[in-house]
């Protein structure tokens, strides 16, 4: 029996966008790019796609990608399909601002109502708000086990054996399927789509699901917290430059400076 694997991916602003190209959207109380550049897939989520494809190559699996986002997100769902995922589902994001609880609810409902699954993969965190919250909410909503910060996975007789990459070292964790794991960049670089992959991805349909279809009316959505403002952090310091006519001189000047500051 091939595994049924689901990967949750989020589309967001490229976290490497220079600050001068960013602006604050006062309506949604979030960050936007000034030129409304296309969104990209969260980096850790591509690591999660790679993890799913690793399992597919090794054990055989059907890989379904799910994203809650706007219509713009459709384009970026093509990439995981081109990498080798089988299907993609886009849940249309409501127009009203939604919080993590609602996001997780919409994702959980889609998963439990529409797809049989053995394993759910998520990124360790979304690099916009760095919450690391949605995956845990999904796991709790579905009442399945979860393992975070995973850099290696194996499956043995429907047991999942994961290695977690923690700040102080590595830790093994085991659980029965079904389960959810969050993948960290230590898992390894996501593969590049092949030409054949790109062509077949273009032929694949992206299934769309609305919140109403999941039994959630937009007018019923409430949030328990509210963002009241966003500010850019300006951290510019006055950097004192050491003249670098030649390296010998610069190294000497730096040494003296550090000595004067009592740092060496």
């Amino acid at each position: 029996m091939p595994l049924n694997i689901i990967v949750c991916i989020k589309q967001l602003i490229d976290p490497e966008t220079p600050i001068e190209n960013l602006t604050i959207d006062t309506h949604s109380k979030d960050i936007d790019t000034i030129d409304h550049k296309e969104l990209i897939t969260n980096g850790f989520d591509l690591n999660a796609v790679e993890a799913a494809l690793y399992l597919k190559d090794k054990y055989g699996a059907k890989v379904t990608i799910i994203s809650l986002g706007t219509m713009e997100s459709q384009n970026s769902l093509k990439r995981p399909l081109a990498m080798g995922a089988d299907e993609a589902i886009l849940i249309n994001k409501p127009n009203t601002p939604i919080d993590s609880a609602t996001t997780a609810l919409l994702l959980s409902k889609t998963i439990s109502l529409h797809i049989p699954f053995d394993l759910i993969l998520c990124g360790r965190q979304a690099s916009d708000w760095d919450n690391a919250e949605i995956p845990f909410r999904i796991a709790e909503n579905l009442n399945i086990s979860c393992i975070s910060l995973v850099s290696k996975i194996e499956i043995n007789e429907s047991k999942l054996i994961a290695t977690r990459a923690l700040p102080n070292g590595l830790q093994k964790a085991k659980t029965n399927l079904p389960g959810l794991i969050t993948i960290t960049n230590e898992f390894g670089e996501p593969r590049y789509p092949s030409l054949r992959g790109i062509m077949s991805a273009n032929k694949k349909n992206i299934k769309q699901i609305t919140p109403t279809f999941l039994g959630i009316n937009e007018s019923d959505i409430t949030t328990k917290t509210e963002t009241i403002r966003i500010n850019f952090q300006t951290r510019k310091k006055n950097c004192e430059f050491i003249q670098n006519e030649n390296n010998e001189y610069a190294a000497q000047a730096l040494t003296e400076k550090l000595k004067n500051l009592n740092l060496i």
């Binding site: 690099s127 916009d128 963002t227 009241i228």
Partner: peptide, 12 residues
């Protein structure tokens, strides 16, 4: 938020 380039003020 955003890796530290901005901050959000939130109330419950």
């Amino acid at each position: 938020i955003f890796g530290g380039i901005a901050s959000a003020t939130i109330q419950s």
